[in-house]
Nucleic acid binder design. Structure first.
Length: 555
RNA sequence: GCCCGCGUAGCUCAGGGGAUAGAGCACAGGAUUCCUAAUCCUGGAGUCGUAGGUUCGAAUCCUACCGCGGGCACCA
């Protein structure tokens, strides 16, 4: 909130310099205002002089001098200015600037940290999209939580978010699923059975077979068609997936069935449209899409010689439907194994005349699971994976969510089960949550003693002068910006890091200074600190809840 | 072979043109008559994979190479 204000001020000085002929406007938008890494280098600093020096071929420190003059005309918030290093202009703000943030923060209440920069933009976040062939695995878990966190952050920044789960319950995969179920069904009755070569070996298939047996008895033993088996399996597996998602606090606005693309003729119309544009041809009894027209190395088959489309075609048709449904921004959260399909879909959309830059694909790397110091290899088919449910049983929802959000999507994520289960005390999740609980504890105490913790009226905030207090005020003021960048960069880990840094500042302050101590601390100071505590609590609570984490009042 | 991601402290990872490169874990030592010790404080630890290049300035951008992971189907 303060940073935004300062950027405006620096921009104004830049404009003024331009109009006064001090420099050209060639550096517009190229300089930045940032928080310096090191203490003693100001509250903020700008590299404008250095950026401009390169363009104007002038001495950076000389330009910095001119900028300093312009900036010093504002004595409302600026305490001190200095030129440092190769040409930074360091800006020191008056302490009061920081103290004054508390009133607006407390007034915003549960809305503090939220913003409207999204401007109601319609965003679809597609994630999980696992076909109903088995329970969600750890990899799906990462995707589910990453997608959900992105959706939550976008909501918090004023976007209109729609969550969609895309799935396919037809085709070869499903046939194998049905056959696997039938085999187990027959096996349970000690009848001869044939387990498919690449069948699903998980125990959950037995459970499905058992419930089928419970419901229908042996009436399906002579069944030729696998459909009843497939349908039952899909029903049970989907119920299982839904309950897992619910446990993680994830809901969807819509489940989109790939099959509807066929029923509603979208598949055919995409092919027809591409054909009309001359981007499709027949070869070897298959239909090919000229992806080479879009800079790809080779063309791709979109309809096999069997007459069935490859996965590319429905993917393209599905994305076209997203465009038709008028989303301004479409975010796909995929595992990195889908990387090859992305360029094909983008090419398809471009071919159909859509602006593919409205689609952002967030590819997350794999989750490697370690147990007893060794990496666990996972396969859905062989059922050697650890399910999300099992993980939740072991560590709980908050820990699972936190760990999956802690890493940027591009990084592989190591989930050390031993660490997550046995060393709970060192868990960063508890570190942050404990920060919140401590604040609540102080507020409870204050309330018991009849002090107000809600309003900053009649409180002298200028009594907040300890360096740790100023540090906390700065941290609080940077909260909305931190959420904003985490949201726009689709990087929930940034929000997590903010919370960990906030917690570190707070725990440190807590150990050094007391808030309530009638014998040693004046009431006026306590009142001011209670305002700080109340604001901090808002930041913890809003931050945690924005990310789908709980903010416990006691631990 | 081609494409994508990654390579930063013993381990797990932030930082992704800016000043003296950070955190957690682990390790060593210390702090509680008082708001929750699930906390805090102190300490050591680094050729930012390698070699060039661009720049006033490179862990950050470019190129090549090395290593790890993933993908290169008329499977999804």
């Amino acid at each position: 909130m303060i940073l935004e204000r300062l950027i405006k001020l620096v921009d104004a000085c830049f404009e003024k310099g331009v109009s006064e002929g001090k420099w050209s406007n060639a550096a517009a938008g190229k300089y930045s205002v940032e928080v310096p890494k090191r203490e003693g280098q100001g509250d903020y600093s700008t590299n404008m002089a250095m950026v401009m020096a390169g363009i104007e071929k002038k001495n950076p420190r000389e330009i910095a001098g001119l900028l300093l003059e312009l900036l010093s005309e504002d004595n409302a918030i600026i305490e001190k200015l200095e030129i440092a290093g190769p040409g930074f202009v360091n800006i020191f703000l008056k302490t009061q600037v920081w103290q004054d943030i508390l009133n607006p923060v407390l007034a915003s209440g549960e809305n503090f940290g939220k913003s409207t920069i999204g401007n109601g933009k319609k965003v679809m976040v597609e994630f999980v999209s696992a076909n109903p062939t088995g329970p969600l695995s750890i990899g799906h878990g990462r995707q589910a939580i990453l997608g959900d966190a992105i959706a939550r952050l976008l909501e918090a920044t004023g976007h209109s978010v729609y969550r969609e789960y895309y799935f396919n319950d037809a085709g070869r995969q499903m046939r194998v699923l049905g056959e696997s179920t039938r085999a187990r069904y027959l096996e349970l009755q000690d009848k001869p059975f044939e387990f498919p070569e690449d069948g699903y070996q998980g125990e959950y298939i037995q459970d499905i077979a058992q419930s089928l047996l419970d419901e229908k008895g042996d009436s399906l033993s002579e069944q030729e068609d696998v459909l009843p088996f497939t349908e039952k399996a899909v029903e049970i597996i989907f119920a299982d997936i839904s309950s897992t998602l619910k446990r993680m606090g994830i809901t969807f606005d819509n489940y989109y069935n790939e099959h509807s693309l066929y029923d509603e003729g979208h598949i055919d119309s995409v092919v027809q449209e591409l054909r009309d544009k001359g981007l499709v041809y027949e070869k070897d009894d298959a239909v090919w899409f000229k992806t080479t027209e879009f800079g790809h190395e080779q063309d791709r088959v979109i309809i096999k010689k069997t007459g069935e489309p490859t996965y590319r075609l429905p993917d393209i048709a599905y994305h076209r439907e997203k465009f038709k449904r008028n989303f301004d921004w479409m975010i796909d959260v995929f595992g990195s194994d889908h990387i090859a399909t992305v360029p094909d879909v983008m090419a398809g959309l471009e071919a159909l005349g859509y602006d593919s830059s409205k689609v952002t694909v967030v590819l997350h790397q794999f989750v490697t699971l370690t147990r007893n110091g060794k990496q666990v290899k996972m396969s859905t088919r062989k059922a050697t994976f650890v399910t999300v449910d099992e993980l939740l049983d072991m560590v709980g929802t908050d820990v699972a969510r936190f760990y999956f959000m802690m890493r940027k999507a591009d990084s592989q994520l190591e989930f050390d089960l031993d660490l997550a289960t046995s060393e709970e005390k060192d868990n960063p999740v508890y570190y942050v949550q404990y920060g919140h609980a401590r604040l609540c504890s102080i507020m409870r105490r204050a309330q018991d003693m009849g002090m107000s913790t809600i309003s900053a009226e009649n409180v002298d905030l200028s009594l907040l002068v300890e360096p740790e207090e100023i540090q906390l005020l700065k941290r609080i003021s940077s909260f909305p910006g931190a959420i904003e960048s985490a949201a726009l960069e689709l990087a929930p880990h940034r929000a997590i890091f903010f919370l960990m840094e906030l917690a570190a500042d707070w725990h440190s302050y807590y150990n050094k200074h007391k808030v309530i101590d009638p014998e040693h601390i004046e009431q006026a100071v306590t009142d001011a600190r209670l305002c700080l505590v109340t604001a901090l609590r808002l930041v913890f609570k809003n931050g945690l809840e924005m990310l789908g984490l709980t903010a416990p009042e006691k631990m």
